[in-house]
Write a protein that binds this DNA or RNA. Structure first.
Lengths: 329, 329
DNA sequence: CTGTTAGCGCCTTCAC
DNA sequence: GTGAAGGCGCTAACAG
């Protein structure tokens, strides 16, 4: 059996409480006993049980970042923001995947008081689950949806404006037949980008044509297929706005295979500004989101709530157009 | 105060044990009480305290994946391998960063019995820490070092052979002056690749020249600087073997800035086969590691140990050359 | 099927 | 400065 604090105390010839004090550096213990205890601990190879102490303290000092897929091309900048701020505040951070839905690790951590707060960016976690997990003293910040609850906060990037920017840019470059390759219909972000797209069309008196809306699911594969489909129908738009970069990359490949030149024959624009966008040929014009800031802000909100300060329920960050070479000049 | 199982029991008018049984679906409870308890739980918005139950069970059912930097360009394939196998076995997975060294979240999870096993790929975790954390019944698998301990297992890819492959390929393409841009000196993987490089030189009767060894630290920046340095000394080798792809990418940029053409003027080869390698221009010839397999194998070992099966202490996976366009034909 | 009871390992008053 | 004792929230014998 693994040694407990009791064993340490016994070996050191003191009471458990004394051992506990010594091990936690509470200045209440003589240097001599301190040393005795520490030696006993080392000798037994004692490791404390973190749960037991968390249980006692009713506080874990760690926050969870919940991602839809740990291995996905997730936003490394965002994670960096989350990580740095968490560390600065002396808290621990763990990342949990929500693969598996209601049975996932993510849900276990949300619902079982294993962390003091959570940041969610995981479309496969339903609103219901979040609502069930929300409770006093347990701040949840969502980055990918809108949700009404006393204990959940949201930071979102202004995707309507981003969608508008992308579309307007295409229009300003002289394009009028502009397709929209959509993400999955249950994605809030996607929906917002679509609204921005529609707004821009309307603003410029371009009538929306449903044939120019085609569905993907944010994967490269789906962008590839959607583009192939568009190509197969013979009539190509002048430009395509892909709801994210991954799909645009798939599109790029489809065009390459069909010897359709981007941007000479058709212009395309993505969304997200993932790292690859810069390296692909032609480099991808896209919309950048302030990812680091979003992550940092999210944790910041968590800590504000934890320290019982008053916080806005909702934040909106703005986007920026990154001009590269996939749109005809 | 948040409701506990006691509150639920009281409201439902049953004993705590009964409530516990009901909540955990132990078939020992009549449908009627079952329902009463569940309703009470819902009404109070009861959420169980996972720690308390882990404490009681002395088992957490989760394993930790320890990475040097959650936001880094870490091996997404590897994570996928780890994740899938973990899920298949009905365990939970959390990712912890080791940023912060001995104070990091990673160390807290290693040392405080918060997980049932761990997989480590984090150069900034020292061997000492691992040795201190190792104990009976707590399998640790390391992916980035060699370490002697009864309770730690290793799976490594055959980096000596990989380094050999890369170098030999360069030699077979007619190069004899081959530089090695090294990773940090404390990296075991780097060391192995270097040995492979040296072996290949010797095998082909090429005498090693220390001027062709220059240091980086696995970052793109360092590859850039190392390459600039090489360029600055006037005399360029015919080919460069970068100890990882990131550094090779930095090198590519340096050459571009100096109007030195890859592969016409100089050949380069990387190591890792990260996603970008394929998209950069020219695309990067490199060594691929079986990352998914490594991850999957690592967890597999963890579970074998956990179920008290006998397992090899060490595994070695092989590498593969990916031929692209950064080496002169 | 249900209730009583005894800890899991640790922290923390409270007396001494 | 040190020790005894109670309890954090939950589970699992053990009785009934």
């Amino acid at each position: 059996m693994a040694p407990t604090i009791k064993d340490v105390a016994k070996l050191a010839g003191v009471a458990v409480s004394t051992a506990s004090y010594a091990l936690n550096n509470v200045n209440k213990v003589s240097p001599a006993t301190m040393k005795k205890v520490q030696e006993a601990a080392r000798e037994l190879n004692y490791l404390k049980n973190g749960f037991a102490s968390d249980l006692k303290r009713t506080k874990t000092n760690t926050i969870a970042l919940i991602l839809s897929d740990l291995s996905g091309p997730f936003y490394s900048e965002l994670i960096k923001g989350v990580q740095e701020v968490t560390m600065t505040n002396g808290y621990d951070l763990i990342a949990c995947s929500s693969v598996g839905g209601a049975q996932s690790t993510a849900v276990k951590f949300l619902k079982e008081k294993r962390v003091d707060g959570a940041i969610i960016l995981a479309h496969n976690i339903t609103d219901d689950i979040i609502l069930e997990s929300a409770r006093e003293g347990f701040p949840i910040v969502v980055l990918d949806r809108k949700i009404e609850n006393e204990f959940v906060y949201q930071v979102e990037v202004d995707n309507i404006h981003g969608g508008y920017l992308a579309t307007e840019y295409l229009i300003n470059k002289g394009h009028r037949e502009i397709a929209f390759v959509s993400g999955p219909f249950n994605s809030y972000d996607n929906e917002m980008r679509y609204i921005g797209y529609m707004d821009a069309l309307k603003e410029h008196n371009i009538t929306y044509q449903s044939k120019w809306k085609v569905f993907g699911d944010f994967t490269r594969e789906s962008g590839y297929r959607a583009t192939k489909m568009l190509i197969a129908q013979r009539e190509l738009p002048q430009a395509i706005f892909y709801a994210n970069d991954e799909m645009a990359l798939g599109g790029l490949q489809a065009f390459k295979e069909n010897k359709i030149s981007v941007p000479d024959d058709i212009s395309i624009i993505g969304y997200d500004d993932i790292q690859l966008s810069e390296y692909v040929t032609p480099s991808l014009t896209t919309i950048r989101q302030p990812k680091y800031e979003a992550g940092a802000l999210a944790v910041h909100v968590v800590f504000q709530v934890l320290s019982k300060e008053k916080v806005e329920k909702s934040f909106k960050l703005s986007t920026e157009l990154i001009e590269r070479n996939s749109v005809k000049y």
